[in-house]
Nucleic acid binder design. Structure first.
Lengths: 215, 215
DNA sequence: TGTGTTATGACACAACAGTGCCATAAGGCT
DNA sequence: AGCCTTATGGCACTGTTGTGTCATAACACA
């Protein structure tokens, strides 16, 4: 089971077919359509049956393709910005770090709005379906990076609460709400996100900053 | 058009079958599944062919059903809450009003999570399609109601910014983010929403409260 | 080079989305 | 009542999703 003498699994081959399927799907999805499994399989020069072996449902195939297409976007934006920023001393520094992250994230969210919208559509299941794809946690990681210097100064519960609240203010969902429900432009939407994030951070630091750490 | 002598159209009959289809679909969608057209038609005691006559695609049927279902949910929740609350004087009162609204909204969002998730999945199109069904704006109305006493004390732009930011902290999207990305329980999620909303409101009032109104 | 494992392909099959066609039942009007 | 209009139901058909089964090709290892 776990370690049969010779693995026997043909990792190379499987990797190739998987990549072929994904890249074919990415191409078709980027073209704007929702390709059928048969189309993707044909484009990948693979049998339809094989496609289903790698991606149990059409949704999962398209989602993973979309995610693959989006991958690196945000991290690239951050990296291109010279990381989250170098060290610093005061609350102002943390605020600047967070602001940079919010800016980068809303920027790339706006640039890839269509793709991210379809990702939402595919991942927001009707129920906590075990079979359904789960989303990534890049947003949380980014927030954690930005907040790293402040983490020790906040009680654990307050820190977690802040991370949660910030995750509401940025990302594709925030953009969608601000555009669809509030009718804002991309720039105005980003301003709202940045103001909300800054305000929540500032208040959190004020609440428990003067004191010590740990709960 | 409006009043042809004898329309010839059997409005009553059509209204009945349409309602039957919608209510059947609402029931099934609320159960968490994405029912097939045949299922909805059977539940509505209507032929599958007829269902397609009223709703050209399964998607349109389910979208209209979920929107209709959500409509009922929200109005019910509002009525049951006896409005936002009575008048008051200070900032504490506004805070209490807002807190009540957030609580009510997150409560009903949690109670009807499946249906609201379906609504999201079906309405989050690939783009702000003008032809596509649009969501309601009840959330904005509720926030405006809660903030009514404070509106005169805030500059217009700041008021709008506050409304926008608050719309990020409450509603089904907030619940989804907090549950799916942060893994919070319903109660913890509501706490985050209430804290974020309270903090944003408080900061807004502090920023421009001591001064006068209008921009 | 052979040999066994393993991924793949071909075929079949059930279920569902849509659509067209036509007979028929249900409505309204005199 | 009778009649004409209109909504409905039944059937057939195409294309797609998703799954099962089994033969075969490709691979890894000796």
């Amino acid at each position: 089971m776990a370690t049969t003498k010779s693995s026997g699994e043909r990792v190379q081959q499987k990797g190739r077919t998987r990549s072929a399927l994904l890249s074919a799907a990415i191409t078709l999805v980027s073209a704007g359509s929702a390709p059928s499994v048969a189309e993707v399989a044909d484009a990948a020069k693979v049998s339809r049956r094989t496609a289903y072996r790698y991606f149990p449902t059409q949704e999962q195939l398209l989602v993973e393709a979309s995610l693959e297409g989006v991958r690196g976007i945000i991290s690239g934006a951050i990296e291109g910005n010279g990381g989250v920023g170098k060290a610093g001393k005061g609350a102002a520094d943390i605020e600047a770090r967070l602001d940079r992250v919010v800016h980068a994230m809303q920027q790339s969210a706006a640039e890839n709005e269509q793709l991210l919208r379809s990702m939402i559509r595919l991942t927001v299941g009707t129920r906590p379906d075990p079979k359904r794809l789960k989303r990534g946690y890049r947003r949380i990681e980014l927030i954690a990076q930005a907040l790293a210097p402040a983490k020790k100064e906040l009680w654990k519960r307050r820190y977690e609460r802040l991370v949660s609240a910030l995750s509401l203010c940025m990302g594709i969902e925030a953009l969608i709400i601000l555009r669809d429900l509030r009718g804002l432009s991309e720039n105005d939407a980003e301003d709202v996100s940045r103001w909300a994030a800054r305000t929540l951070l500032r208040e959190s630091l004020l609440e428990a900053a003067p004191k010590r750490k740990r709960k």
